[in-house]
């Protein structure tokens, strides 16, 4: 995983609550056996006017001009601003893969579904939780005539809207450490091979039917 470094980016405001992972990346694209290439089909049902299928040339498909991702103001956005319970539903990691492949590096919302929240960190995508009033204020600024630009500093745990006071956020210390250092969870866990083996040895006695 790449190290998460401080960056500035444009905010794309997606004003919906309960955005589910079926909407983030529809099922027909889950047939891929790769981790990459999902970006062009991010929010496919909302983003295009036709029915998307794997293998289509997405550059030739009719786009939905009313969908926020297609608004020229937000071209090149790397921060997604949205409402509560983002990423609910299916556990598909294709959702953070699609968001990251499109170019998003940060999501800001009042709350997230647990599995999506967890999957995001494992793909270098930072989901920031801010209170609903702060999210409201960011929506006001992001939907004005000019796009809102934010600087995200994970080490300092703050975002800085251009020309405004910085806003602090909380993040789990372990997850922050992994993102900042680009650490692979499996590599970390395999440092504890002896503990896992000791646990298994104990369980073989306590609950032998689990190893039959």
């Amino acid at each position: 995983m790449q190290k998460f470094e401080t960056f500035s980016g444009i905010v794309c405001p997606l004003d919906r609550s309960n955005v589910d992972t079926d909407a983030i990346i529809p099922k027909q694209f889950l047939k891929s056996i790769k981790r990459t290439g999902f970006g062009p089909n991010l929010f496919d049902d909302w983003r295009y006017l036709d029915r998307g299928e794997p293998g289509m040339d997405n550059s030739r498909r009719p786009i939905n001009p009313d969908f926020v991702l297609n608004d020229p103001r937000y071209a090149g956005a790397s921060i997604l601003l949205t409402r509560e319970n983002f990423g609910c539903g299916s556990s598909r990691e294709h959702a953070p893969w699609a968001l990251a492949d499109y170019g998003f590096r940060v999501i800001i919302a009042p709350s997230y579904a647990d599995i999506f929240f967890n999957n995001s960190f494992k793909n270098g995508l930072l989901p920031i939780v801010l209170d609903a009033a702060t999210v409201d204020r960011l929506f006001e600024r992001a939907t004005g005539g000019q796009a809102l630009r934010l600087t995200v500093d994970l080490a300092a745990q703050q975002i800085q809207p251009a020309g405004d006071a910085p806003i602090g956020f909380d993040v789990d210390a372990f997850r922050k450490h992994c993102l900042l250092n680009g650490l692979d969870d499996i590599g970390l866990t395999l440092q504890h091979v002896d503990d896992i083996k000791a646990y298994e040895a104990r369980r073989r006695v306590e609950a032998p039917w689990l190893f039959q």
Partner: peptide, 23 residues
């Protein structure tokens, strides 16, 4: 019992464990 993403599928295949915090 709970659902996991693909990174965690790989983690379980490789280590038989998951990194978790109690709910």
């Amino acid at each position: 019992a709970h659902g996991i993403g693909t990174s965690e599928v790989e983690h379980v295949l490789a280590t038989q464990c998951l990194i978790q915090k109690k709910s």
